[in-house]
Design a protein around this nucleic acid. Sequence first.
DNA 1: TCCTTAATGTAGCCTATGCTACATTCTGCA
DNA 2: TGCAGAATGTAGCATAGGCTACATTAAGGA
Lengths: 152, 152
Amino acid sequence: MSHNSEQEDHDLPVEGNSVSFSKTRREHSTEIMEDYVEAIADLIFESGEARVVELSRRIGVTHVTVTRTIDRLEKAGYVICPPYRAIFLTEKGNALARSCKERHQIVVAFLHSLGISEQTANLDAEGIEHHVSTETLQAFKHHLALLHKVTL
Amino acid sequence: MSHNSEQEDHDLPVEGNSVSFSKTRREHSTEIMEDYVEAIADLIFESGEARVVELSRRIGVTHVTVTRTIDRLEKAGYVICPPYRAIFLTEKGNALARSCKERHQIVVAFLHSLGISEQTANLDAEGIEHHVSTETLQAFKHHLALLHKVTL
DNA sequence: TCCTTAATGTAGCCTATGCTACATTCTGCA
DNA sequence: TGCAGAATGTAGCATAGGCTACATTAAGGA
Ligand SMILES: [Mn+2]
Ligand SMILES: [Mn+2]
Ligand SMILES: [Mn+2]
Ligand SMILES: [Mn+2]
């Protein structure tokens, strides 16, 4: 997380191609946080509260992994997690969850609009969403809007 | 790499949503290899050989990181790397490089066809490519083919 | 109320992927 | 032919994100 990332040191001149790889690495360091806050928001909406066990079932990792990730989320200011209690989203966490959920839905809808099956759209979107820039997201939205008009 | 991934243990019942997260995690464990073999193939094509320094410039990490990743690639049978010499692709490595390059180009072309700038298309594709299933890749190709026809 | 059991916490292990600092080897030019 | 500097190798450190095994706490039914 606290890596240099954009280096202009003597060892690592930033050269054309490396920019995209840096971007991808940067996105990878935030995508787990994004998926967690989104899942937490979903759980709160669906069942009133987000518990570690339930999160671990959703995400498919052990409760230990969830606990340590939640620690990081707490340090980063996205959640509050009192011992033996549920996980609560901060305002910052809620904002992130909202924008991630919206982006997720747009990506799914876009893939679906290309004729991709619901199943595959959902599977692929979970990974793709984290690498979609604002410009690309806008293009997806635009495409969906066009389709909507044509279908009328 | 050697994690269970698809678990049917008592602790971790596979539940609907977790499948997509597992898929994403699986893809992350292979994407660095994919980007490396592709970059190695490019370097060999462009300058006759792939050296660690040049790779480290391309990818934007130190030569140490490259060296250790190359070790893993060698153990996995994608490259051969004699001490103080260049990096050579095995048949397996060459095959992977080819299919990654093709996929990469399709993703870039597809994004570009949505009106996304060349720059952004290149940036986003570097991350998106690894999360595109066969079905989605086919849909991208199909979309491009349609556009091609319309443009004629 | 108590006690079983589910949920949560903690210790300790692993791999992947970054880094710096330093050692070694190669290579091209004087 | 030597040697300076570039390339490569290696030691050691950090963090993220997986895991198992075991300890502790909370909650609900008998
Ligand atoms: Mn996701
Ligand atoms: Mn998501
Ligand atoms: Mn990714
Ligand atoms: Mn890539």
